[in-house]
Amino acid sequence: MNAPRRNMMLADALAQVGAVGLFMFSILAAVPKSLRHYRETVRQVWFVGAMSLVIIMTCGLFVGMVLSLQLYYVLTNFGGTAALGTVVALSMFRELGPVVTALLFAGRAGTSMTAEIGLMRATDQLSAMEMMAVDPMSYVVAPRFLAGILAMPLLVCIFNALGLLGAHLVGVSWLGLDNGTFWGNMTSTVEVWSDLLNGVWKSAAFGAVIALIATFQGYTTPPTSEGVAYATTRTVVSSAIVVLALDFVMTAFLM
């Protein structure tokens, strides 16, 4: 690729970032008004949160189970299987819970946000709202943004709980570790603020970022069916990248 072409791409990327930033400000500006349509937020929490429960719970259970199994094999080498519960809890609470839930959330809820809003754009529903003097930013976009922020931490807690259940199933019921040791070591090491809630805050930030990207992609998509299809793909790809990058930044500098 030659230099001018690369500069173009860089400029495009920067313009995109700028557009997303402006979009975020207009969402934040629309949030107060969107509280008047709080029912819409409630509905969106249902769609992005409750409807993601099945995938979140299943994945949480399996992540916990496989983590337990893998760590058991690793820890037996050091005679440290007593630490299994602790290690599972710490890695789930601090990293795996928020990140895996965020990736699943982007795939399950982010894509549907993008497709819905993109379709509303393509079928003039957003224009129709504008014509009925209803601001789509506060009626369509802001409720989804709020729902993302609200639903993600709750989903992470459920994911973590199911993960620990899975780890317990494998570690205690199957591999025969002592139940008391499993929980006892965990409770003596894991802290509420620095471990559990740390991950919960992070996940709220992930929820905001995913909802921002998803609604932006939907809102600005070309009003055609392939426009919506591309936008949906972009939502997953950009969400994954941004979530992992943000995770690193937040972990390194804030936690």
């Binding site: 003039d124 129709a128 601001d135």
Partner: peptide, 18 residues
């Protein structure tokens, strides 16, 4: 928006909220 509240607009493709 005040002005539009007094305008009824029928879209070419209906644009019902799905």
């Amino acid at each position: 928006f005040d002005l539009r509240e007094r305008i009824g607009y029928l879209f070419q493709n209906s644009a019902l909220l799905t």
